[in-house]
C-alpha cells in the first residue's frame, strides 16, 4: 500500500538572479514498510524534497508552485498551518544531517523526546517521560533511565543521532524522513545507525525515505531508489535495477565514482572515474536535459528538449533521450 505519494511537485525559489526551479515535477511513491533511497549530488533537490514533504520549505523565497503530496490518500499541500503541524512529528518524522546541532543544548534528551510526545498526545508529564526512556531503550542506548537525564553535549555523535531517531519515532509516525542521517558520523557509527534504521523499520513498519549520497547505504538499506539531478528525478527503480543495470548516464557516473575494495596491486587498479563538469546553476537551465553538458552520450535532441521519465515493463524508469533511443532500437 502506498503511504506517501509525491505527485508532480514543483518548487520555485525567487533569487536575485531570477527564478530557480529547485524541484521540477518530482514524483515519488513510498510503500508501507519500505525504504526509498533518494540519491544525488549536493544541491540536486534531495533535501528540498524532504522539506516539501514536511511542509517546511522556507517561504519566502521558496514556494511550492504546483503538485500534491498525499499521505495515506490525504493531500498535504492544501492543509492549514495548524493541520500541517499536527502531521509533523506525529505522522511524518524527520531526522537531520547534523546530530551535533539538531538537539536543543539547554534541555536533557529525555525532556526533548517527552516534548515530542506531549505535542501530539494528551500524555501526562510522567507518561511522556516514561515513553522517552522506553524510546531511548528502543534505539539502543544503554542505561536509558540515566541517559535520559543527560544533556546533548554529554553524548557522542552516534548517541545523539540515536536520540534524534527516538524523537522522530516517539509518536510512531507512518513515514520517517532521514536526511543524510550519517553524513556527520564516522564509518563504524554509520553502520550502526543504518542497522538501527533497518531494525526499526522492520519492527515498526515505518516507511523510510532515506536521503543520501552514499551509494553503499542505498545498496544496503533501500528497497527502491530515485536518482535526482538538478531538481528532477532522472532514474528510478528497485535497488537491483538501478545499481546493477543503471540506465541513465548520470547514474552510471555516480556508481563509477564509488571506490571499491580492489585486491589487485596498485598498477593494475582502474583509475577512479569522475563525472566531468559541474552541476549547472538552477537559474540558468535551458530547455534541454540538465545533464546534457556533462554527458558522454548526449545526442542532438538532448540540448533541445527535456526528456521525461519512460517506464520499462519492470517498473524501471529513466529520463534520458539516449536511453530511450537505445531501448527502441532493441
Amino acid at each position: 500500500m502506498t503511504v506517501l505519494k509525491v505527485d508532480n511537485i514543483v518548487v520555485d525559489f525567487a533569487t536575485r538572479r531570477g527564478n530557480a526551479r529547485v524541484l521540477d515535477h518530482v514524483n515519488l511513491e513510498v510503500n508501507e514498510g519500505e525504504i526509498l533511497g533518494i540519491v544525488g549530488e549536493s544541491g540536486c533537490g534531495k533535501s528540498m524534497t524532504a522539506l516539501s514533504i514536511m511542509g517546511l520549505v522556507p517561504s519566502p523565497p521558496g514556494n511550492l508552485t504546483s503538485g500534491s503530496i498525499y499521505l495515506e490518500g490525504r493531500d498535504l499541500v492544501g492543509l492549514s498551518k495548524d493541520e500541517m503541524r499536527e502531521i509533523r512529528g506525529n505522522e511524518i518524522g524527520m531526522i537531520f544531517q547534523e546530530p551535533m546541532s539538531s538537539l536543543n543544548p539547554v534541555f536533557t534528551v529525555g525532556e526533548q523526546i517527552a516534548e515530542s510526545v506531549r505535542l501530539h498526545e494528551n500524555a501526562s508529564q510522567r507518561a511522556a517521560w516514561e515513553r522517552a526512556v522506553e524510546m531511548l531503550r528502543a534505539v539502543g542506548i544503554p542505561e536509558a533511565e540515566v541517559r535520559a537525564k543527560s544533556y546533548p553535549h554529554q553524548l557522542s555523535g552516534g548517541m545523539r543521532q540515536r536520540v534524534m531517531i527516538a524523537i522522530a519515532l516517539a509518536c510512531n509516525p507512518r513515514v520517517l524522513i532521514a536526511d543524510e542521517p550519517t553524513t556527520a558520523l564516522d564509518t563504524t557509527v554509520q553502520a550502526q545507525i543504518f542497522d538501527l534504521l533497518e531494525e526499526l523499520q522492520k519492527s515498526r513498519g515505518t516507511a523510510i525515505v532515506l536521503i543520501t549520497h552514499d551509494m553503499g547505504a542505498v545498496a544496503q538499506l533501500a528497497d527502491r531508489v530515485a536518482v535526482m539531478y538538478a531538481g528532477r528525478i532522472v532514474e528510478t527503480g528497485t535497488v537491483e535495477q538501478v545499481l546493477t543495470m543503471p540506465r541513465h548516464p548520470y547514474t552510471e557516473g555516480l556508481i563509477a565514482c564509488v571506490p571499491h575494495l580492489q585486491p589487485d596491486p596498485p598498477e593494475k587498479r582502474e583509475p577512479l572515474l569522475e563525472i566531468p563538469g559541474v552541476v549547472p546553476s538552477l537559474t540558468e537551465l535551458g530547455d534541454g536535459c540538465a545533464f546534457a553538458p556533462r554527458c558522454n552520450r548526449a545526442l542532438a535532441t538532448c540540448t533541445g528538449r527535456q526528456p521525461v521519465l519512460k517506464t520499462e515493463g519492470n517498473g524501471h524508469a529513466t529520463a534520458c533521450w539516449a536511453v530511450e533511443a537505445e531501448l527502441e532500437n532493441v
Binding site: 514536511m54 503541524r85 509533523r88 536543543n104 505535542l119
Partner: peptide, 14 residues
C-alpha cells in the same frame, strides 16, 4: 537558523 529549531519545527512545535 540552527538545526535544533528546524528539528523542533519538524516535531510539530508551534
Amino acid at each position: 537558523g540552527l538545526e535544533y529549531v528546524s528539528a523542533g519545527r519538524s516535531i510539530g512545535a508551534r
